[in-house]
Design a protein around this nucleic acid. Sequence first.
DNA 1: TTATTACTGTACGATAGCGTTTAGTAAATG
DNA 2: CATTTACTAAACGCTATCGTACAGTAATAA
Lengths: 229, 229
Amino acid sequence: MPTSDADASGAPSVPRAAGRGRPPDPAKHAAILDAARRLFFSGSIQALNIEAVARAAGVSKVTVYSHFGDLQGLIRAVVLLQRSEMTAALDDLPSGQLGLRQALIDLGYALMGFLTSDDYVALQRMLATLAGQETWLGTLVYRDGAEATRDRLATRLAEASARGDLRAHDSRLAAEQLLGIWQGIQTTGLLSGGCPRPDASELRRRVECGVDVLLRAYAPEASPGRDLR
Amino acid sequence: MPTSDADASGAPSVPRAAGRGRPPDPAKHAAILDAARRLFFSGSIQALNIEAVARAAGVSKVTVYSHFGDLQGLIRAVVLLQRSEMTAALDDLPSGQLGLRQALIDLGYALMGFLTSDDYVALQRMLATLAGQETWLGTLVYRDGAEATRDRLATRLAEASARGDLRAHDSRLAAEQLLGIWQGIQTTGLLSGGCPRPDASELRRRVECGVDVLLRAYAPEASPGRDLR
DNA sequence: TTATTACTGTACGATAGCGTTTAGTAAATG
DNA sequence: CATTTACTAAACGCTATCGTACAGTAATAA
């Protein structure tokens, strides 16, 4: 389902011989990336070493080097792959227009499901580990992850404001506040391993109550919205 | 200024000879911890190796081992030290009672200053890196970091509700929502190195607007609070 | 077929870091 | 004083991992 991203597949990483000899096997490339990702997920970045990756991918060590050049290159590729799937997931977020409240709830529920997924947590951990060297990776993921999501949400809030369903002067701020309300201290806890994954009912409560708070705070008139139980 | 914590100074780590021979030098112990922390801060956990620590602390390698037994032990000690300073900082949060709004703003400002500090970010990165092995460290920090802060904030919100200044049925939820509002996607960005430190005015805006959102959402009557600009 | 490139398997050199040992010095107690 | 413990400096063995080299096999284009 990820709209295959040129960056992630690694256009410059692939040997790219154009015409002459034996063509490089894209299956190997994918197998290496998958193995690398799995290895990283089950353990820290420590587990992500070339030999283990080659073994897990059923591929020679030399092939790994010829595809990704370097351990850094492999790590980069893994992060970029995760990023591409991440943005794909964010693009697939629901956008039904059956009432502002329900639309926000649907979106929040899908988003929180994603933010609390093992994949996302793993990516964040990876970035936290890599921050310091490879800064640009963090910037990249942040830009078209968190910021893009905020801005997309802001757009919807602005539309709602234009329709009169809401009175949010600064829609970007409001969007970020909603994102924060949904997350609370949950993502922090997940990242540090301090708390377990929330179950579906917990997520739903978080999302619905969050939407209600925002709607009430930015209600256009003397709050016509339902009472906050 | 941190109320020196027995856990962090490492009661079981120190050789503790009681009476007989040459007493262990607490200055060395502190120097090692400080060096380890500095090393970790300027770089990843990769930079935190015994030899570098010993060199930076002006101490023999063997001394490091005799104090902390192990690299794991040293890392643990660094995390626990950070944690003790962290909780100390959280304990020192303002608690003035000059009106709910101002009290919350003061608290939020202090808290956000802390959450966006290099120290806190470094600790979070460390935990994210360590999550997987050493789970209990993350749990520990999360418990008396984020959770404790949320619960303390919840208590104040509950008091305000009892006074009639607020109508928050679930004060813990409300507290977590406020924490989330304040943070937004800021801490995520800092952790992954995706965005720069916010300046004071940005922080203030974040905090004040956040408080206003919460107060308006949980206003007791037809919002007597000032308008949300 | 031949040239060219991809891939395998194994082996190698180099480095880095851990944790230990040894021999000796420093500081405290009895 | 003797004893005991803390500390230093240097060296050592060990393991893990990186990245490369080599010799051979597989696949494809000219």
